[in-house]
Amino acid sequence: MTGTLPRQKEAPAQRDRRLLTLLRTGGTVLVRWREASVLIVAIAMAIYFRAANDVFLTYDNLRNIAQATAPAAIVAVGIVLLLVSGEIDLSVGVVAALAPFLVHYAVDLYGIPVIPAFLIAFAIAAFIGFCNGVIVTKFKVPSLVATLGSYYLLLGILLVTSHAYPAEIPSAAKGRIQTIFGAGDWSSLIWCLGVVLVYHVVLTRTRWGLHTISVGGNLIGATEAGIRVNRIKIGNFMMAAMLGALAGILEAFRINSIDPNIGGGTALVFTAISAAVIGGTALAGGSGTVIGALLGALILAELQNGFNLIGISANPFNIILGSAILLSMVANQYLSRLRRTGGG
């Protein structure tokens, strides 16, 4: 009995200490693992919308949210790669609109089988990214301006070749291929999660990712260290364009129509940039996370969907979106400062 007494005395103090450690760990996780704060917002939002409307967490509605999240997140992954390397690409949205048209032209006008037609579309997207990258790195045109130019150029090509009319999915692609590439309930989400997983590993666990961070963090330093900075940037432009093409093809196959307006506006690329920024990627280069971008896209999809369900018109959505971007940028700055000064 006497042996247990001191232990009982210690218990409350120990519990306090454990609670304190837990809180401190929680704080550290928030500061160190920057995606955590975005995840908390995404979950809080889901709880709020579920409380406001029973439909929010039903199977059908989750599918809707998944389908709205996926294309934005896939494009956002490419945007994160570029932002981390200190660049941006405004033309990926049009590449997304163009890619299914390229498949349609190849199959219906040139009689090419569907899978090779896909490869052609991806190759052309990669070439577009390559051109963007060369213009930015070799001709030293800032990427914002360079890709604004290619945005209009590609949009013009898209509208001229399609006569600004939607086209049908090639009949050879209907059935299994269409289901795999977007038409299946969860297919675009599966593609999206695959892309996010692969690029999370690329950015955090490979040489390419390390060099991408280096190029965006300290361009001169990276050059002096012998990193081929132009190759890294051009490669990221190519991957961003190809991810745009993938998102465009998935989206066209899902809605069962090839529509020049999908990425032809600025909506897709702006949503993707917003997702990246809300997810904690800094525009200054050198840091960013792919998982954060996925969560950012999820938050945006939740917002739009939730607003629909509770019957708020789409107009205030932009107010919320704008505020969210500003708020997350301020929070991002604050968290980076904390992280740098060793908070946590």
């Binding site: 060099h211 280096s214 963090g217 300290n218 330093g221 260290a225």
Partner: peptide, 22 residues
């Protein structure tokens, strides 16, 4: 070792030590 040191602020000490020779 350049004046600017060619270190990447965003990377850890050990990643910088092995930069481009990972």
């Amino acid at each position: 070792v350049y004046q600017g040191l060619a270190l990447i602020n965003e990377l850890s000490v050990y990643h910088n030590m092995f930069l481009n020779r990972e």
